[in-house]
Amino acid sequence: MASIDYYLGTISPWCYLAGDRLERIAAAHGATITYKPLDLLQLFDRTGGVRPADRHPSRMEYRGQELARWAEHLGLPLNLKPAHWPVNMAPSSYAIIAAQQTGGGDLGALVQAFMRAVWAEERDISDDAVIREILGANGFDPGLADKGLFVGAEIYGRNLEDAANAGVFGAPFYIIRETDQRFWGQDRLDFLDRALAAA
């Protein structure tokens, strides 16, 4: 059985546009997914990337066009200038980490719900009430918003170190653990699917 490490940033529009395709691909091949939310901005700093706020305007204009094209292609609603972006990724990431450790709900749907909240619903995913509501709506104890803070913070930091050591430099980033096959971007999910089929 293949194992996929999924490195993500909960405010990444590209992670949002991935939708549930990773989960469907994994289910089709009997693969497991380990969700590894991290501080995407620090990852850029560590690996030679440039934070969006510091990118040249031409790059940001192109980014906006590409996001709009992909959203239309995938049939996903997308606000290119969400009310709560950028926002602190840590609280939502801690909630995902706690939910993954505890179980009981739909983890893939939880991850997607946080990103949909940013890019389609104009919600603040650093707000405790929003985090609790999203946890509950996806089958998890809303109290995980408080219970998993210490462990969440520790693993959140470790995920950044793991990412840098594994060759990750952006998100979404997928690694098939057994073969070290790496895939950067939601537009590489078809290649991930093919790699799993060939394994």
Rank of each mutant, 00 (worst) to 15 (best):
T102S: 14
F44C: 03
G139M: 04
R55A: 04
D128P: 02
Y6C: 14
G75F: 07
L107H: 06
A95P: 12
L67G: 03
Q181Y: 09
Q112P: 00
A195C: 00
A90T: 13
A28V: 05
L189M: 05
V130P: 06
A137K: 14
A137V: 01
N165A: 15
A163H: 08
R55N: 03
D190A: 14
E178R: 02
F150R: 14
G157K: 06
R182H: 15
D162S: 12
A28G: 06
L38V: 10
E122C: 01
G103V: 00
P13M: 05
H29F: 12
A109I: 01
K36Q: 11
H84Y: 15
A117Q: 09
A71Y: 05
G136F: 03
L135R: 12
Q101V: 01
D5F: 04
T47E: 04
Y174K: 04
A129T: 12
S3M: 02
G105N: 08
I11C: 09
V87N: 08
D20A: 13
R24A: 10
D45K: 14
W85T: 02
E121T: 04
L41D: 10
I96R: 00
I125K: 08
P86C: 08
L41S: 11
E72I: 02
H29L: 08
L43G: 09
R158H: 12
D20R: 13
G19E: 04
T34D: 11
M115S: 12
E121Y: 00
G9C: 10
F173A: 02
A153S: 12
D39I: 08
A71E: 11
T179M: 09
H84N: 10
G103E: 01
S93T: 06
L8C: 09
W70H: 13
Y94K: 09
A164W: 05
D54F: 12
Y35K: 01
S93A: 15
